[in-house]
Amino acid sequence: KKTCTFCKKEIWNTKDSVVAQTGSGGSFHEFCTSVCLSLYEAQQQ
């Protein structure tokens, strides 16, 4: 099972999830929504 990098909820429907390359290492992270992605990126600043 996949979990959201930001909120840690399980991702049930992968077509609704967002995968983004974030951080200095350029690793890929999966998020349940684009909202979680935005919040995660804001936290990394």
Rank of each mutant, 00 (worst) to 15 (best):
V19E: 14
L37H: 13
Q44P: 10
K1M: 10
S24H: 14
W12Q: 15
V18A: 13
E41C: 02
S38F: 01
K1G: 07
F31S: 02
G26S: 12
E10K: 06
K2H: 01
I11Q: 05
T14W: 03
T33K: 08
L39D: 13
S34D: 12
K9M: 06
T33L: 00
K9V: 09
D16Q: 05
Q44N: 09
F6S: 09
T5I: 09
G23Q: 11
I11T: 01
T5N: 14
E10C: 02
E10R: 04
E41V: 03
Q44D: 14
C4R: 00
Q43R: 14
K1L: 06
G23C: 09
G26I: 07
F6M: 14
G23N: 04
V35K: 12
F31I: 02
S27A: 12
E41G: 08
A42H: 06
K8I: 03
C36W: 00
K8S: 11
V35F: 14
A42P: 12
E30K: 07
Q43N: 07
Q45R: 13
E30A: 11
F6P: 01
F31N: 02
C7V: 00
G23V: 08
Q21Y: 04
I11D: 15
K9S: 08
C32I: 00
A42V: 06
F6L: 09
Y40L: 06
H29G: 12
S27P: 13
T33W: 00
K2T: 07
F28N: 15
F31W: 03
E10Q: 04
S38G: 12
Q45M: 01
Q21H: 08
F6D: 02
S34R: 12
L37W: 06
C4F: 01
S38M: 05
S24W: 05
D16M: 04
K1A: 01
A20D: 06
L39V: 08
Q44F: 06
G23Y: 01
S38N: 08
K1N: 14
C36M: 01
G25H: 06
F31C: 08
N13A: 15
N13W: 04
E41P: 04
C36I: 00
C36L: 00
S34T: 09
H29M: 09
V19N: 08
T14D: 15
T14A: 10
G26E: 12
S34Y: 05
Q21A: 14
S24D: 11
E30N: 06
Q21K: 09
L37Q: 13
F6G: 09
F28G: 15
G25I: 06
L39G: 15
